[in-house]
Structures are given as structure tokens and as C-alpha cells.
């Protein structure tokens, strides 16, 4: 079944502790809606993926109480998709590649991706997903671009005149600032 992620993370002792039934009841409907929005249409696929989300949620609940089961369920759905893409495409910790792949599959242009995600299709989709990926920018080809010097005419003229007058009339021991200009 290729890269299907069909098992929820297990507890250290290998058992999965169920979350409260009421939590899942609240979350299940939203997971269904979210999966539909992702582009999963087939009831069988939705059932498979919902079940995986439920299992993940149960595991998560054993580590820490769920503040909001619905929010946690959406996060787990998201994580489930990312894990599948990571395995399917062999992405190893490359957040940019993962984000690009996510955009490619959710564009709705790759037929059969949701069945593959749900573990109901066997053909590898990596080449198709890659074909639908687009880089927004090309490889860097930098050039140096420094600010050009523009010497304005008469800029600081007033100060220069004042300095000149000062040099003529001011006392020679007039304090100067660190750059040597008269203050």
C-alpha cells in the first residue's frame, strides 16, 4: 500500500487510550467537513481517514488533556496529511518541499490522491505530485547592487558658510565634535 499511514502513533506501552466519546462526537462532524474541504469525497476514504484521526486524537489525549477536541482533530488531520506526503515523496524534514507538495495535492488536480492517502489505492503518486509542483522563484542568481553616490550641489552650503565665518571670527579653542567639525 505504498506510503499509507494507517496506524496512529502508539503509546510507549503499545496501547492506545481512548479519548472521551463526547469529545470525538463533537470533533467527528468537523473532521468530516474538513476532509471534504481538503478534497476527499468518497465515503469509504472519509471513514478510513476519520478513523485514523480519531486514533491519533486518543493518543494525544493520553499525553495531555485536550483543551479543544475540535481544534486538536483539525491539527491531527493536518498532521496526517503531512505524514503521508512526507512518506509518499520521501521528503526528509524539508518544510518547503512539504508545503509545496501540500499545495499541489490540495489543488484538486491530482486524480486519486485521496484514495492513496486513505490507503485504498496502490499506485505511487510521487511523480504526479511532482509534476504539479511549481517553484515560485528560480534559483538565486545574485548581483551586487550598491547605492550609487549622488553628490548634491550646495548641500551643506549653509553649514560650510557658517563654518567659514566661524573659522574667521570664532575663538580658536572652540570645541570640536568627534569628527573634527566645529559644533
Amino acid at each position: 500500500m505504498g506510503a499509507r499511514i494507517d496506524s496512529a502513533p502508539a503509546l510507549p506501552d503499545g496501547t492506545a487510550m481512548p479519548t472521551k466519546a463526547s469529545d470525538w462526537t463533537r470533533a467527528a462532524r468537523r473532521v468530516f467537513e474538513y476532509l471534504t474541504a481538503l478534497g476527499v469525497r468518497e465515503p469509504q476514504e472519509i471513514d478510513r481517514l476519520s478513523e485514523q484521526v480519531r486514533l491519533r486524537l486518543e493518543i494525544r489525549a493520553t499525553h495531555a488533556p485536550l483543551e479543544d477536541a475540535v481544534e486538536a482533530a483539525i491539527e491531527e488531520t493536518h498532521a496526517l496529511l503531512d505524514e503521508w506526503l512526507t512518506v509518499e515523496l520521501g521528503i526528509d524534514g524539508d518544510a518547503n518541499a512539504l508545503a509545496t507538495a501540500r499545495a499541489a495535492v490540495l489543488g484538486g488536480t491530482i486524480p486519486g490522491w485521496s484514495a492513496r492517502w486513505a490507503g485504498l489505492a496502490g499506485d505511487a503518486l510521487a511523480p504526479t505530485i511532482r509534476a504539479f509542483q511549481r517553484d515560485a522563484v528560480p534559483e538565486f542568481a545574485p548581483l551586487t547592487m550598491q547605492a550609487s553616490m549622488i553628490e548634491l550641489c550646495c548641500h551643506r552650503l549653509r553649514r560650510r558658510i557658517a563654518d567659514a565665518i566661524c573659522r574667521l571670527f570664532c575663538q580658536p579653542d572652540l570645541p570640536t565634535n568627534p569628527r573634527g567639525e566645529r559644533s
Binding site: 528560480p138 534559483e139 538565486f140 542568481a141 545574485p142 548581483l143 547592487m145
Partner: peptide, 9 residues
């Protein structure tokens, strides 16, 4: 643009 990709063109 020039600083990042100017060398390409």
C-alpha cells in the same frame, strides 16, 4: 529583483 535573480538575465 536584481540582487536576487539579476544574474540569471
Amino acid at each position: 529583483f536584481c540582487r536576487q535573480w539579476g544574474g540569471r538575465y
